[in-house]
């Protein structure tokens, strides 16, 4: 009996030593989250990404897996984020006629909204007594992760804290766009997509592709432009 237990322990070590366990768990949680999302009637306040992430965290915690080891294994998936970002250029090209028709609102909205996305958070956190390190970590909260990492390092913030803020921002931006779209009200899919990408980076963009192809293209545009704009402007603004 005790021999079986020791073999079980060895099995856990063997599986945890390869990335396949992390990939299997992530894929499993992804499908389980989507299935659960449909079963509970597609609530707007609980997007599939949050459901899946909660399931996945639960499993990692219950199995007492090392989070760092999981992250290492999951790199086989996250490395695809690079080509996936490039892939956003294709709907952008396919929807170019829509974007041309909206160039004026985009040019007016982007600099103001992208700057305010950082300034609102900085002012609120500063007023509540956050340290400079925390402020530097919160500043790029609406920027897509690969760019935000660069900005935070440049400003002297903490990358894990920034990643946390980034992900929470992505999820709540998705919720607030759905909520405020009804209150303002805004029905134009192009505006909703742009707001999702500008405020909620990749998480908002994923949500926008659930709305429609057009919304997704505008989200890709909003995400890309916000990333480029913030990367250039934030280091200047922050030192004031």
């Amino acid at each position: 009996m005790s021999e079986l237990f020791s073999r079980l322990g060895a099995l856990a070590d063997t599986l945890a030593a390869t990335p396949i366990l992390a990939i299997g768990l992530t894929l499993g949680a992804f499908f389980a989250g989507n299935w659960l999302f449909t079963r509970i009637g597609r609530p707007l306040w609980l997007p599939p990404v949050l459901l899946s992430a909660c399931l996945l965290s639960g499993v990692i915690a219950v199995l007492a897996l090392d989070y760092q080891a999981y992250q290492q294994g999951a790199r086989w998936l996250t490395v695809l984020l690079g080509p996936a970002t490039v892939a956003l250029g294709i709907p952008l090209y396919q929807q170019m006629h829509h974007i041309r028709a909206m160039w004026r609102p985009i040019v007016v909205t982007l600099p103001i909204a992208a700057t305010l996305a950082a300034v609102y958070a900085l002012v609120i956190a500063w007023a509540l007594g956050a340290t400079p390190e925390v402020l530097a970590s919160l500043a790029p909260k609406s920027v897509t992760a690969p760019i935000a990492i660069g900005i935070t390092e440049q400003l002297g913030g903490s990358v894990p804290l920034m990643m946390g803020g980034l992900l929470i921002t992505g999820v709540v931006a998705t919720l607030f766009v759905d909520l405020l779209a009804r209150l303002v009200p805004v029905k134009d899919e192009r505006i909703l997509g742009f707001a999702l990408g500008l405020n909620g980076h990749a998480i908002g963009t994923a949500r926008a592709f659930e709305i429609s192809h057009t919304a997704g293209a505008f989200a890709s545009l909003g995400m890309g432009l916000t990333g480029v704009f913030t990367a250039m402007i934030l280091p200047l603004v922050f030192h004031l």
């Binding site: 992390a22 992530t26 894929l27 949680a29 992804f30 599939p48 990404v49 949050l50 899946s52 992430a53 996945l56 965290s57 990692i60 989070y67 999981y70 992250q71 999951a74 998936l77 996250t78 695809l80 984020l81 080509p83 996936a84 892939a87 956003l88 709907p91 992760a145 894990p160 990643m163 946390g164 992900l167 929470i168 992505g170 999820v171 990749a202 998480i203 963009t205 994923a206 592709f209 997704g216």
Partner: peptide
């Protein structure tokens, strides 16, 4: 790739 974008950002979300 775009249809599995959520899958790719999940490991990061778990980090929170």
């Amino acid at each position: 790739l775009i249809s599995v974008l959520v899958l790719l950002i999940m490991p990061g979300v778990v980090g929170v």
